[in-house]
């Protein structure tokens, strides 16, 4: 991107203007995400920088909103912070409950989506797959169809089959509807990432394994799986994040007590918006930074495995 020596003045001016424009667009992309981090340490219940924060006065900062995340919904938040206090947090804190629910739903939805999606992607990337285009279009459609339409349809469908009353050996499966819905929403991501990994997959490797006497199962676990694993993991991460961030389906089909983090945030933003929302947002931003790092490492590993140039 360096400017050649013979560039005219006009070109030089334009080049630097262009870099400034790009910088501003990057700022537009990243600033809204980073701004919540300092604001979540605000000592006052405001959404803006106070005088004290601007002058870096330690009094202007506090972790009270993070504290509120723990204490909100507790039965006895004001007692001494010993083991029973933490037990109370674990049992009763509304945000901790929501986090637990989100993780349960996310994990099971991810397992469904990843297992089914990976197997299907293996089939889809075989050259002899019939109706490939149509089937692919159907499997990707949960990502394309607006979530409000999916949620509306699920609401009608689940109420007509009464999914909330389904039992397995007398045990009412909690979150079943939400897990299935989130698995469906995560499937397109798994399909896309795993088929993308399989594009560079050398099919003669499986034939080589077979010719050396491995049965299909051994071939899959010893040869195919290690090679497509980066794609599978990043698909699973996508599916998990999709579930972890999904609010509309939960609002439409979730029972009253099935609170998840996004639902709790949604209620918070609509009703009693407080900086506590910003502290949740900060935690989520940190999680997404971690995810991004994992994904980048996976991408490098995948490229190395497939013999592509390292980034």
């Amino acid at each position: 991107m360096a400017l050649p020596k013979h560039a005219s003045t006009l070109e030089r001016v334009w080049h630097y203007t262009y870099l400034v424009i790009c910088g501003l667009i990057f700022l537009f992309l990243i600033a809204p995400i980073l701004i919540v981090i300092p604001l979540s340490f605000n000592a006052e219940p405001y959404f803006t920088f106070t005088q004290k924060m601007m002058s870096f006065d330690p009094e202007g900062f506090s972790t009270r909103w993070y504290d509120l995340l723990l204490t909100f919904g507790m039965s006895a938040p004001d007692v001494a912070r010993d083991g029973s206090w933490w037990a109370d947090v674990w049992q009763n804190s509304a945000w901790v409950q929501a986090a637990k629910n989100s993780v349960i739903v996310g994990v099971f939805a991810t397992i469904f989506a990843t297992v089914l999606g990976t197997i299907a992607a293996l089939g889809l990337s075989r050259p002899e797959m019939p109706y490939r285009r149509l089937i692919m279009a159907i499997l990707i459609s949960p990502m394309i169809v607006p979530i409000i339409i999916t949620a509306t349809g699920l609401f009608f469908f689940y109420s007509s089959i009464q999914i909330s009353k389904w039992e397995l050996f007398g045990w009412q499966i909690p979150y079943l509807g939400i897990i299935l819905a989130h698995a469906t929403l995560g499937i397109p991501f798994v399909i896309i990432t795993v088929t993308a990994t399989l594009v560079g997959f050398d099919h003669s490797l499986t034939r080589a394994a077979a010719s050396l006497g491995a049965n299909p199962r051994t071939t899959f676990f010893k040869v195919t799986m290690p090679l497509i694993l980066p794609g599978v993991i990043s698909g699973a991460l996508f599916a998990f994040v999709t579930s972890f961030d999904e609010v509309v389906a939960v609002l439409f089909i979730g029972a009253f007590d099935e609170q998840t983090i996004p639902r709790q945030m949604w209620n918070g933003i609509r009703e009693q918006i407080s900086p506590a929302i910003l502290s949740v947002a900060t935690i989520l931003v940190v999680i997404s930074i971690l995810l991004l790092t994992v994904l980048e490492l996976l991408r490098r590993r995948s490229e190395r495995l497939r013999g592509l140039s390292p980034g």
Binding site: L116, A120, I135, L139, L154, I187
Partner: peptide, 22 residues
């Protein structure tokens, strides 16, 4: 190949296409 895709196709049929149909 179809057999590999079938479980997912059925899953999507039940959890996505049937609700849209409804």
């Amino acid at each position: 190949a179809l057999f590999l895709v079938l479980p997912l196709l059925l899953f999507v049929l039940i959890t996505f296409l049937a609700p849209i149909g409804q």
